[in-house]
């Protein structure tokens, strides 16, 4: 699995949100898209899965256009985009990951049930399968969304700010999970504004502030020159696009 983004440009209301962004995320690795608020990180992720229409640019998964491989790409929105009072139990939300495999009006098959159980087990939430989703902690909610992507049999995982509102300790657990998924061959891409956390788990970092400032292994990219440039660019233009 290789996710390749080439020359991606997105415009919001006639202003460039991101400009000519290119990067490659390989299977077996964790890629972090890092930058300040308003740098266009979430926009990149949304453009990759087709939630916002790019002005130009090409996104391919294994050389094929996204429209052909949608179900192999798991998208995890920011937690605050979801309604946690929604009447659903953990197993229901994970079950939504099976949607692309189901026929109209048919019941779930054994395969589907096994995929759900396996996904829950992998993220350590089997015991909480029948909990109402609002009763989970922030970290557990995030792991549930990971399980949903696993039930979807997604080999590419795109996570939008997975560490927001999660204490450092739970964050360690989630990081471990993501790293182990990558070790099993998944292509993990996450968006984050927190440098320290991301650099610890990423194999590949993309510093973004409307354009790609630098990319490569965190040890090489996380230098003060690059970071200053990434975070200073925002001082020039205080407008925040989220």
């Amino acid at each position: 699995m290789t996710l390749a983004v080439q020359d991606l440009t997105v415009t919001y209301r006639h202003r460039p949100a991101v400009h000519r962004v290119s990067f490659v995320a390989e299977s077996g690795s964790v890629t972090g898209i890092i930058g300040p608020n308003g740098a266009g990180k979430s926009t990149v992720l949304k453009a990759v899965v087709g939630l916002v229409k790019p002005e130009s640019g090409i996104v391919t998964v294994n050389g094929r256009p996204l429209s052909e491989v949608r179900r192999s790409v798991g998208y995890l929105p920011q937690r605050n985009e979801l309604d946690w009072d929604y009447p659903a139990q953990v197993r229901d939300v994970v079950g939504l990951g099976r949607y692309p495999y189901l026929r109209f009006g048919r019941r779930m098959s054994n395969t589907d049930q096994l995929a759900i159980a396996g996904a829950l087990d992998r993220v350590g939430l089997s015991e909480l399968a029948t909990r109402q989703i609002g009763e989970l902690s922030g970290g557990q909610q995030q792991r549930m969304l990971v399980a949903r992507a696993l039930a979807q049999e997604a080999s590419t995982l795109l996570l939008d700010e997975p560490f927001v509102g999660i204490d450092a300790a739970t964050m360690a657990m989630l990081s471990d999970l993501l790293v182990s998924l990558a070790a099993d061959g998944a292509c993990v891409v996450l968006v984050n504004h927190d440098l320290a956390a991301t650099s610890k788990i990423c194999d590949n970092a993309v510093l973004l502030n409307q354009r790609v400032i630098a990319q490569g292994p965190p040890s090489q990219v996380m230098t003060s020159t690059w970071l200053d440039e990434t975070y200073a660019a925002n001082l020039l233009d205080l407008e925040v696009w989220s």
């Binding site: 087709g50 939630l51 790409v73 985009e81 929604y86 939300v93 949607y99 009006g105």
Partner: peptide, 23 residues
């Protein structure tokens, strides 16, 4: 509602994923 139940379920809970899946 019965035939499209799962579509309504996914769309009403997570419209972003619904769209990302091409719904």
């Amino acid at each position: 509602v019965v035939v499209r139940f799962r579509a309504f379920h996914l769309w009403s809970f997570d419209p972003l994923l619904a769209r990302a899946l091409g719904m």
